[in-house]
Each structure stands twice: as C-alpha cells, then as structure tokens.
Amino acid sequence: MPQVISSSVTAEPSVDEAALYFDISQADKELVSHLESTSDEMGDILIESFYAHIMGHEEAAQHFRDESHLERVKRGQKRYFADLITAPLDDAYIEDRRRIGQIHERARVSPTLYIGAYSYYLTRLGDHVRQTMKDDPEQAFAIAFALMKLAHFDMALALETFVSAREDTIQAREREISELPTPVLKLQDGLLLIPVVGTLDSFRARALTLQLLEGIREHRARAVVLDITGVAAVDSAVANHLIQSMAAARLMGAQSVLTGLSAEVAQSLVKVGVTGEALNTAGDLQSGIVLATKLMHG
C-alpha cells in the first residue's frame, strides 16, 4: 500500500506548522496563560458536567460502562485541558498530543466524543472569560481567539493521529487477511472448495497454486471449485497464476471450476487471453458446484 500523505498537515506536525497553518505565535500562548487559574478552578467542574450531560445518552453510557475507565478518561482530559493553557508549545507538547490521539484510536474514543468534549469545554470557558472580563472586552476577545487557535491545532493533531492510527489498523488487518492460509474444504468425496479471500498478489497466488495441488493429492480430488468472490482485484500476473494453477490441476486429473468473478477480474482474465471455453467458469458458487460435480462424473 502506498503511504497516504495527508493534504492538510503532514504526517509529522511540527511547531513550525502550528505557526504556518494555525497562525499561532508566542503571543497567543501568553494570552492563553492568563486563563491558568480559571482553568484550574473550572477544569473539574466542566469535565464533570460534560460527562453528566452525555451519560444521559445510551451510547455514551455504554462506552463508559466501567467506572474506573470513566475516571481515567476524566483525569486524562483534565490534564489535557490544563496543558492546553500552560504547557509550552514545543515538540514535547506535539508528541504528547499525538500519543493521546493514538490512545483515542485504541480506546475507540470517537472524533465526535473528542471534539464534543472539547467544544463543551471551550464554550463554557469562553463564557466564563466573557463574564469575568466585562470591563475589557478587547482582551477577552483576544484571549478567546488565541484559545481557539490552540484548540484547533490540538484537534488537527489528534485527528491526524487518529486517522493515521486507523489506517495502520486497517492495513495491518488487510495484511493479516492476505497472509491467512487459504482453506481447502472437502465438499464431498473427490470435490474440493477453495474460497480465496483478501488480496491476491503474485506471492500469495503461487502459494495458492501449491495448496490447490497438494489439496488434490491429499484428498484424491477429482474436481475443485476455486471461488474468488472474496478477491477484490486481480492483475494480469495473478490472472496468469490462476490459469496455470487450473492447468496444473487438470494435469493431475482434477477438473477445476472458477466462480465468483467480478467484472474487473473477468476483464483481467480476458486481457491475458483467456476465454470462457478454455476455462470452466460459473456465475456463482452454487452453479460452480453443480458444474464441478458434473465434470467430476465425466
């Protein structure tokens, strides 16, 4: 799989990018630091009230069934918000934000929950700033905007990490599937079914050929149904492997039937010069088994 390069912030966000994309300067950091005592005071209260608010919903309640899990999340969130106000914006900060993004992905904290909590916190904190700084609305606005910039940068970091962790998870799963040994199932005496699932690259196609031929030897099979419904794409090299496998099976005395060809796969086969006559194909597994049974009995 080619590495996916994000178009918004690169895979390695840096302090420079905080400045470039989010217009964050040291001045912003200083403005926000005015909120230190407020944030200390309000952190707990806001977090408690947010969870009291969302726990009324079944989905959230389901997610936080475990009391100690909820407590851990609250503690983490409090520190997270405290860092937003006080921690210097440096590589360590970014690294920490990314780590938390990864934890979110693993703990299945959805972007909705994360951004929702963030938004709840920001609006309440902003409201507090508005009320306590009535005499200096200019400064109140400046602080609120600085806070917004930092918060957006935070969210970008968390989501970039969340997305890339999710991609890693998906890729790892795809790899697992593609490395799964293909099962050789005995449908009845002399008839085998090989359901091929996942990505079929040249390496796996070669392994499949050997499994097919060994399966024929082991089960004394006279017919084999090769079902490729679960195969997404087949390039011409893999199409060639499939044809060679079936030709080799026939040399061993076993008829083979190919089922579950998608339109794309059918096209790949035609490109390498295969016709339906040369290859026994059937539309679906059911008719493939019927055809194989017929061929098996000569």
């Binding site: 060679q244 030709a247 061993m252």
Partner: peptide, 14 residues
C-alpha cells in the same frame, strides 16, 4: 495419463 505429481504438473505448466 495417470498420476502426474503436483510438482511435475507445476513445472510442466511453467
């Protein structure tokens, strides 16, 4: 023709 072994079948095809 009877009993072509898997390895032989593969080599022939290749």
């Amino acid at each position: 023709i009877v009993g072509i072994q898997p390895e032989v079948a593969m080599a022939m095809v290749l």
